[in-house]
Design a protein around this nucleic acid. Sequence first.
DNA 1: GGTACTTTGTCAAGACAACAAACAAACATA
DNA 2: TATGTTTGTTTGTTGTCTTGACAAAGTACC
Lengths: 414, 414
Amino acid sequence: MNRPSALTADLSLMRELNRALVLQLIRREGRISRADIAKHTKLSRSTVSSIINDLIDASLVTETGIGTSKGGRRPIILEFNYQANYIIGLDVSRNAVSAVITDLNARICSRRQISFNVNDGPTVGMPLIKQLISTMLTESPVGRGRISAIGVGVPGPLDFRNGRTIAPPVMPGWDNVPIREELSQTFRLPVSIDNDANLAAMAEYRWGAGQGAQNMVYLYMSSAGIGAGLIIDSHLFRGSIGSAGEVGHTTLSVENDESFGPINAGSLEALASQITVLRLAREQKLINADDDVHALVRKAESSPEIQAILRRTAHYLGVAIASIINIFNPDRVVIGGVIPETSPLLIETIRATVARRALSIAVNNTSIVPGALGRNVAALGAAALATERLFAPPALERPATLGVHSNEVGSLAS
Amino acid sequence: MNRPSALTADLSLMRELNRALVLQLIRREGRISRADIAKHTKLSRSTVSSIINDLIDASLVTETGIGTSKGGRRPIILEFNYQANYIIGLDVSRNAVSAVITDLNARICSRRQISFNVNDGPTVGMPLIKQLISTMLTESPVGRGRISAIGVGVPGPLDFRNGRTIAPPVMPGWDNVPIREELSQTFRLPVSIDNDANLAAMAEYRWGAGQGAQNMVYLYMSSAGIGAGLIIDSHLFRGSIGSAGEVGHTTLSVENDESFGPINAGSLEALASQITVLRLAREQKLINADDDVHALVRKAESSPEIQAILRRTAHYLGVAIASIINIFNPDRVVIGGVIPETSPLLIETIRATVARRALSIAVNNTSIVPGALGRNVAALGAAALATERLFAPPALERPATLGVHSNEVGSLAS
DNA sequence: GGTACTTTGTCAAGACAACAAACAAACATA
DNA sequence: TATGTTTGTTTGTTGTCTTGACAAAGTACC
């Protein structure tokens, strides 16, 4: 029963930590001088110089000019070299695999999509995925040598010890497939893999509507279903077996409500997924058979009936979100997917439901906003995960508690 | 907007980390030799020796004997010196303040309780609390000088930046009271303060029914209400403003169920608290006016009516727990309080409800058990928090993600 | 009992990262 | 031009871990 033991600290670890510290500061600040880095990190100027030399040698950082003086020598401006490496991000969906190549700042510089049927299983699917990666590698404008990692998102839970799928409901036949190992061995690159909702959460947190949040909940209303990604203290939380945030198959309870009649329990996915919304609208002949969600949202503006469907859907989502807010106390809730990101009605109705049902002190400190990254969120998140991995400082044990402490009197440990 | 920046690594930090690493290993293992520590921590034997000398000088560790040989020189056995320091743990409840003095292994060596009315407000309450601490300090069998920290639990949310209460529903008049500062200044000791459910969770996690869990949910059915404490990767999770796990004032939704009729929404605390259970039983004249919860549980064995009340209560609790499990995916759920810890019926009914309502893959990996520490959980947890604080290694930034990674190919950072 | 091998704990020498202090470069201000 | 300020580098010191050697204290086998 050995848990992941804390790392032992030696000189090389020290260097790694400070290197990562400096690097992250440069990534966050954009343009910064050695002296400012020393001030921010409280490292000595000489140490900073030494570390910067390392980073310049590794071409992760470049000197891009001279800053303005404040009464003395003008500083040399350092910038993160976002084009030092490139990352491939993949999003495996139910009927398509989309891929992006991004630089280290998540700027997409190449994008491609293939159609795909997840029901064909891994014997058909894996070669397709590999071929897509191959195409991206060879046809990329940046050259294969500069692509240094691959990130993959799949619509289902994963065993995160070995990077295998575990009985994913929307991926029949894909149980226990060692996706990570296969790709890693084929392409000789580090491969990161995760649930698509988690990845989308990651992307929104880093570059989208979740920036600056401390604890964020991301609800992902994709074509494949409904999932949630939880970010705690800047880190993805997956739960004990990786099913944290798997709200899609939750039994939903909705009591009598002023605006809705009594409703039997069902799963959130059955009640409020994109597919359900489309089906309801088609059954009521409010949209055509070949209309997609974009058309639905557009037609909603002039159709009270579609609006009613959206309100009801939002109500279900709101119930689930209220529950999450009560338990989790996030400071931001981001709702991603085509409908949430294009229909203000949905978001507003969700806000109203949450305000009625969640703890007011928690709601008042939470902003509920639509996603900001659009169609490629999950692929972008896959790239984000792989990127973070490249620059992550070594994992150290956190202190045993997060309680409230007096700092006035010293501790024994120090 | 400067967030708590990651620590810069220098030589003293290195020493601190390794010291904490060794100390925690000794605390966990109980009896261990220098050589074994070197093997476990991957530190060199000479480094371990040096650190151990420090720890022996600080009398945190003692040499307690000679072990058995495995073909060579016999090892010197080291043990944590649990009696090196003592901790005071306080639990402020609605009508009582209980205090314990524990050694560093949470063994209670002194205990005391005063009656108290939280409604009298802080001007009456704080002096009482201070007096109780004074009494514990002077009358303690271990001597004032060896008491090195104070932990306090209160039944409400806290602003954990400055250790003040914030608008606690069950503590009228106690808004924004700087409890931590006052006690810290009065007694010149480090003071830790937290919500009572969080502290109880801590105690059960460390010494009770939560041992060995990775992600644990603790539901606390106390006389003051219902609260939950969440432990994530061995750490208390408090949420953005400290209201994580505040399930007591959550609007509960219960749909039609085979065994219970339709029920209007209400807060969990109103529907399933200890007070409500007692009130219902008294109204139906199933117990006497002066019977307490112990009597209620005893009489339940021969009273189908009381059993019905307990089943219904368990059902409500089960609904809340199912929701938490779906979102959180814990591997253990511990339910504390007199009724859960003495009534098997309650626990079993909760299990049944949860099994019906939560995601099966998550439920199958979660054990739902009653608390094991009894009456003094929260006070014990307060001591536990203060103890952990004494031995916590410095807080370092965790890596940015917890995703799934291939380790086959090196990263840029290393 | 004697010899060979193991294991434990300590010691001295060396490596390495950060730091402090001095220094040179480059600039602002009076 | 003289003075002071800010930036970045160089040099020597400090503190920690590691390696390798060594003494101490045992087991196993002849």
